[in-house]
Design a protein around this nucleic acid. Structure first.
Length: 199
DNA sequence: TGCGTCAACGCGCCCA
DNA sequence: TGGGCGCGTTGACGCA
């Protein structure tokens, strides 16, 4: 399976230096000036980079990395192909994007989390709507029961014989009794049709 | 200044 | 037992 999209070869992997930006961006609506800060975090690391970052001594203050538009786009493309990466793919992608494999790994973890969150929110909305329609249906049925009960009471005052019915199961003649609660509150869970998943 | 976003971290769990 | 993952959290950053 190819890891990188075909058009990834002409990636503009701009690495900005503080106070200098060679490619002004108009991305994401959130802040053009952010990119200047990510020289240190974005550089292709040396082999001992992780140790350097985790710092055998005191940990350096955490800098906020912002992925470039192209980096994000490529990562999104890869994520669309596969939600997880094997070590080889991770390494390749990291080299291609000039990031550390750990950063690729973290990005995919966060991306999966966002995806799941979005799915959960959609399910929540769906359940709310479903609950609303069930409530509405329940109310309608309650009203119907009340109407039927009123009709029954009215007719029973005319003839008492009509209150005797044949039980369909045991085939005995019984005194008809309208259940006090003809509409049962069924847990919505048991009535939910299969939910279409987003993918 | 409060808030939303998101990269990064830490920890526990699972599995080959 | 080490690596990968999920999950909760932290901290930097931009914006209204």
């Amino acid at each position: 399976m190819p890891i990188l999209p075909e058009n990834s070869s002409n990636l503009d992997l701009t690495i900005s230096t503080p106070g200098f930006s060679s490619s002004p961006r108009s991305d994401e609506g959130s802040g053009g000036g952010r990119e200047q800060l990510k020289l240190d975090m974005n550089r292709l690391p040396s082999s001992d980079d992780d140790e350097e970052l985790s710092h055998g001594g005191s940990a350096p203050p955490r800098k906020k990395l912002r992925l470039t538009k192209e980096q994000s786009r490529l990562l999104e493309d890869c994520f669309r192909q596969n939600h997880t990466l094997n070590p080889k793919q991770k390494e390749t992608l990291a080299k291609h994007l000039m990031l550390r494999p750990r950063q690729i790994e973290v990005w995919f973890q966060n991306r999966r989390a966002r995806s799941k969150l979005k799915q959960t929110e959609m399910e929540c909305e769906y359940l709310k709507r479903w609950f609303g329609s069930l409530t509405e249906q329940n109310n309608r049925l309650h009203t119907e029961v009340e109407e039927l009960r009123a009709m029954k009471v009215g007719s029973s005052t005319v003839t008492s014989a009509s209150s005797h019915t044949m039980c369909p199961r045991c085939e005995r003649v019984t005194t008809a009794a309208i259940p006090s609660m003809a509409v049962v509150d069924v847990p919505a869970k048991k009535m939910i049709p299969p939910l279409e998943r987003e993918h």
